[in-house]
Design a protein around this nucleic acid. Structure first.
Length: 262
DNA sequence: ATGCCCTCGCACCGAGGA
């Protein structure tokens, strides 16, 4: 049975519960992966989600930062949660559907301001996190798997508003792009969004600091949908819901969707 | 770095986001 999956960095699931409900009502994805829930698991407001049919849920959380959750209309069991780079952060959770499809939901560290690990501990943590992701997929090749989330890297030149101006800006530096490529290669992950939308600028995040984000359009594609080669050809209809960035009191990220005929 | 916003908590600033 085909299913549609969405990934969205929500920037506080408690503050934006109403926006999550609106997305679930308007788009009705079968599965919604959230990042930056900024909530302990027990404080995630789940009643409304369950009322809309999202009866299954896996999540990892902590008090103030990070936090990831997967809401599903289909039966789903937890398939692990790893703390890459031993940061003690809730940045990953995985779920398994009844047909065996595994869904990884990741929130990769942002990496701070200075793209140099000698000068900026957070940048080193970001690279270490990607290294551990790479090693995990190298140790056990993923199959029938989907990986989504806020990977905090815009890899392609047309994934940012200005390649030249962002070369030294964390999220688009060559060292990060290379690290992400190694992680992607280690699992033979296919970039589903770019498989479906191969040409042209495509962004999923616009800074809160830009007064007119829509007109300025200084965005970056930080949010990704990947799949293993055995199911990549089942994916289609990828979309970035740019208009959601314009909702009242929005997240700074837009949802990214894909449909899988599995 | 284009501009200076948004969220959280032992809160009314500081840290983290990207």
């Amino acid at each position: 049975m085909p299913f549609t999956l969405a990934t969205w960095n929500i920037n506080s699931v408690r503050l934006r519960e109403a926006l999550v409900l609106r997305l679930l009502e308007e788009e009705a994805p079968d599965i919604l992966c959230l990042q930056e829930c900024k909530s302990p698991v027990e404080k995630i407001p789940v009643e409304g989600f369950e009322r809309l049919g999202y009866r299954w849920r896996v999540a990892q959380g902590q008090k103030d930062y990070n936090g990831v959750a997967i809401l599903s209309k289909r039966p789903m069991e937890e398939a692990g949660a790893v703390d890459h780079a031993a940061l003690g952060h809730a940045r990953h959770v995985a779920g398994r559907l009844e047909d065996g499809t595994v869904i990884h939901n990741f929130y990769v560290p942002a990496g701070g301001d200075v793209p140099n690990r000698e000068m900026n501990v957070k940048f080193g943590q970001k690279l270490d996190y990607l290294r551990d992701m790479r090693d995990a997929f190298h140790a056990e090749a993923p199959a029938r798997s989907i990986l989504v989330g806020d990977l905090n890297i815009a890899p392609r030149e047309d994934d940012v508003w200005s390649h030249k101006q962002l070369l030294k800006v964390v999220s688009h530096t060559p060292v990060e792009v290379a690290a992400l490529a190694e992680t992607q290669d280690s699992g033979a992950w296919v970039d589903i969004t770019r498989q479906d939308i191969p040409e042209g600028p495509l962004y999923s995040w616009w800074s809160y600091r830009s007064p007119d984000w829509d007109a300025a359009d200084k965005g970056r594609r930080l949010d990704h949908v990947w799949a293993t080669p055995d199911i990549a050809n089942a994916a289609h209809s990828s979309r970035v819901l740019r208009h959601v960035r314009g909702w009242e009191k929005p997240s700074d990220h837009a949802p990214v969707l894909a449909t899988f005929d599995l």
